[in-house]
Amino acid sequence: MILIQRPADITPSEITSEGLFRQRRNLIMASAGLLLGGGIAPATGVAAVSDFPGLKPGPFATDEEKTSFQAVTSYNNFYEFSTDKRQPAKLAKAFKSRPWTIAFGGEIAKQQRFDVDELIKKFPPQERIYRLRCVEAWSMVIPWVGIPLHRVLKALNPSSKAQYVRFETLLDPKQFPGQRGSLFGSSLDWPYVEGLRIDEAMHPLTLLAVGLYGRFMPNQNGAPIRLVVPWKYGFKSIKSIVKIDLVDKQPLNTWNRQAPREYGFYANVNPAVDHPRWSQARERRIGEWSKRPTLPFNGYAEQVAGLYQNLDLRTNF
């Protein structure tokens, strides 16, 4: 299979050292900023605030240039607010992301509800600098703050019947104008639903992200807690999660239901399989003018290609 042959362009050792280097440099810049009265912001253009004291960098970090905080928080596909990418930043200002409870259910030892801050305390998050590739052929590099999902799932003691994980976004048309619909129907069926196979959910790359750039998750990026699956198209990374169920059947995810010809269940980043309406061979990194080639599994083939050895990725797109 062509998809698996391509080696990662960066070796893991390089990633870590570079990531650490950047961390340290940011720390130095930040402390310098503090000394000088907070006048200097780090190279990323973000003030050195942290909502996660003692946040440590986790594995898999890319050393690619991070997309600016400004771009990450002003260009969002968040249809619960609007189908226009600039609107969520404006419409999400009043969104109430705390207090926030996530209900865990399905094939687990005991049905449980967690407050998001409780979850953060129980499972200390890490910083994970990942590439994000949208199905619309643009991409970003985002320093997420997230809890590896497998830690949470393991603590729930899933039974052997738990073959898939089903995620659900908050349904609240009062807060989400996009859920109210228009004369010509709604943009999607609400609430938004996503799913992962259990081995995908248990993969060390998969995160329950609770922040980015060292801050609590901005409302427009899916506050307070969202999924991040960096080798899949962005729409898999469901936002503002209220419900996580371990189930025995493959969940019908929202976009797959909306347009099954265009969006599948797997949605692995794959330059060889085009979206019916656009090519997936290249992508535009936000902040750059020319397009760059898209990598199989968004550059995470080394980590995840093994999960799909017996799967035809052309039909299971």
Binding site: Y79, T83, E136, S182, L183, F184, S187, Q258, A259, R277
Partner: peptide, 12 residues
């Protein structure tokens, strides 16, 4: 119509 992903209000 054909380039809109889901919400057809505007082309409509």
């Amino acid at each position: 119509f054909w380039l809109v992903k889901s919400d057809i209000t505007r082309p409509m």
